[in-house]
Design a protein around this nucleic acid. Structure first.
Lengths: 135, 135
DNA sequence: CCTTCCGTTTACGTTAACGTAATTGTTTGA
DNA sequence: TCAAACAATTACGTTAACGTAAACGGAAGG
């Protein structure tokens, strides 16, 4: 049943974004939902694209970069030169992603250290650590 | 010899950013270099801050977020409530970073698959793959 | 002395990614 | 039938993170 469709607000609430944002993505050509009269109708393919776009955003990519990455998947080239160029593009992306992982690991290491200090400083008086309500 | 100092253009070229960017960081209070007359003089501490800010940027953090993370390190709190709050903040950051790592891994997996297809499609005619000059 | 090379300040411009109305349908349940 | 809920279009506003240009100052070298 991948023939399911979605309304804009369904997708918006599923992904935790506004309908404005999704329409904006359409303005930018990132998705092209069908229409049922006036209303937009999103296919599962559209849904996946939006999901990938948001994944890109989470790691700091621009919308354009996200679509570039997404577009690496589809009409698989046959021309040799294009293939070589594609390989190059992919390698570049991979390198950046690995750099990002390193950055994240460094930051995680630092945070763990601070966390350790906190708990140590706290352990002198407390045994139970109750979570603080978010916000 | 951590008493070294740097000019703005030294740091700019070392980090591959413009002097304008570094001055902008100062405007935003992210660094506070000394002055030698009119000229800005950066200490190694300033240099580290800038480095951390740029690390944050690479993984999609805003400048504000970067300083927030940096500021988690310094005047280690003693108040219990503040410590608990700090632990919470750190936990939140860690969660986000782990999410980012997952996103990156997913993307890397996808890219590797496409890369595999490329090389397979290419292997039928080519043995040597010469790198394409950048841009 | 003059030019060239940093560096500084001030200030307006720009791009991305939406937010925020305002106005106008359309459908649907009471 | 009529208001409430959801959707669409149009258009101006906003924030972050600089870019770019103008105008000026010191110093170093030929």
């Amino acid at each position: 049943m991948p023939n399911q469709t979605y309304t804009i607000s369904e997708l918006a609430s599923e992904f935790g974004v506004t309908t404005r944002a999704i329409r904006f993505y359409e303005e930018k050509g990132l998705v092209q939902p069908l229409r049922e009269g006036q209303r937009r109708v999103y296919t599962t393919a559209d849904r996946v694209r939006i999901k990938l776009i948001l994944r890109g955003k989470r790691i700091g990519m621009t919308l354009q970069e996200s679509v570039e990455v997404i577009d690496l998947y589809d009409p698989l080239r046959n021309n040799t030169e294009q293939l070589l160029s594609l390989i190059n593009t992919i390698s570049g992306r991979q390198a950046r992603l690995l750099q990002q992982k390193d950055d994240i690991d460094d930051m995680l290491t630092g945070l763990s250290e601070v966390l350790g200090l906190c708990e140590k400083a706290l352990g002198k008086r407390q045994k139970k650590i109750s979570a603080i309500p978010k916000k």
